[in-house]
C-alpha cells in the first residue's frame, strides 16, 4: 500500500484511535507554533464554551498545527525511505495522523473549529534517507518541547494526563529514529526536546 492509499484508508487510521483512549493538546511555545501555523489566523473559537474551554481550544489547535506539519513531513520523507526504515516512516505517519484526528475531535467537542493543514509547507531539501531521519528527529524534538511547555497550561487534569500519552509516544518516535541513525535510542534520562 502506498502512502496516499494508506492515509486514505480509514480502517488503518481508526484502529489506532480505538486503541488510544487519549487526546490532548498543547502549545505555549509561541515561536514553534508561529513557525508551524499560518501565522495569520485568529483562534477558531465558536460559541458557548467557557474561558478555560476557549483557552484549551487555542492550545489544542497549536498542537494540531504541529501534528499536521508532521503528517506532511512524514508523507514527503517516506519517498526517500526504503525497507524497514520505510515501514517506520509509514507507522509514524499513521501515529501523527491519529494524534491530529484526536486533537480535532477534542477541539470540536470544546466548541472550537480545528485548524486545517496549510496549503503547503517549507521543508528542507531531503535528498537521502539520512536527511529524512535527521529532519524527523528535529520535528519530534520540536513537538516534545512544545507539548511539555503547554502541558501545565491545559485547564483539565484529564487533558494533562492524556497529554503525557502523546508526549511519551513522540519520545518513542525519537528513540526509534535515533536508533535508525545508529545512535542510542535512550540517550538521556530526561526527554525535553531541547539540546542538553
Amino acid at each position: 500500500m502506498d502512502i496516499d492509499s494508506f492515509l486514505r484508508d480509514p480502517h488503518s487510521r481508526r484502529r489506532f484511535l480505538k486503541r488510544s483512549g487519549v487526546i490532548v493538546g498543547a502549545t505555549g511555545a509561541p515561536m514553534l507554533l508561529a513557525a508551524c501555523g499560518d501565522g495569520t489566523s485568529t483562534p477558531n473559537v465558536l460559541t458557548g464554551p467557557d474561558e478555560s474551554d476557549q483557552a484549551d481550544v487555542e492550545i489544542l489547535n497549536g498542537a494540531l498545527d504541529l501534528e499536521l506539519q508532521a503528517v506532511a513531513a512524514y508523507k514527503l520523507g517516506a519517498r526517500r525511505l526504503r525497507g524497514s526504515v520505510l515501514d517506520i516512516g509509514k507507522k509514524f505517519l499513521e501515529h501523527e495522523q491519529d494524534h491530529a484526528d484526536a486533537l480535532a475531535a477534542a477541539i470540536r467537542d470544546a466548541g472550537g473549529r480545528p485548524n486545517r493543514a496549510k496549503s503547503s509547507y517549507d521543508f528542507p531539501d531531503l535528498r537521502t534517507q539520512t536527511d529524512v531521519l535527521r529532519f524527523a528527529v528535529d520535528l519530534e524534538n520540536t513537538a516534545i518541547a512544545a507539548y511539555i511547555d503547554a502541558l501545565p497550561k491545559l485547564s483539565q487534569g484529564e487533558l494533562r494526563a492524556t497529554a503525557a500519552g502523546i508526549i511519551t509516544n513522540e519520545a518513542e518516535h525519537l528513540a526509534v529514529l535515533l536508533d535508525a541513525l545508529g545512535q542510542h535510542p535512550a540517550p538521556a534520562a530526561f526527554v525535553t526536546g531541547k539540546a542538553s
Binding site: 487519549v22 508523507k75 495522523q97 484526536a102 480535532a104 477534542a106 470540536r108 486545517r116 503547503s120
Partner: peptide, 26 residues
C-alpha cells in the same frame, strides 16, 4: 521543497469518538 498535503492533512470528523469518549476510555 514544498509539499501540498492534500488528503494526508485532512482532519475529517471522527464522529464515533468525541473528546469525552476518548477521555473516558483513557
Amino acid at each position: 521543497q514544498r509539499i501540498v498535503p492534500d488528503g494526508a492533512a485532512d482532519t475529517a470528523p471522527a464522529p464515533e469518538r468525541d473528546r469525552r469518549e476518548l477521555l473516558r476510555h483513557g
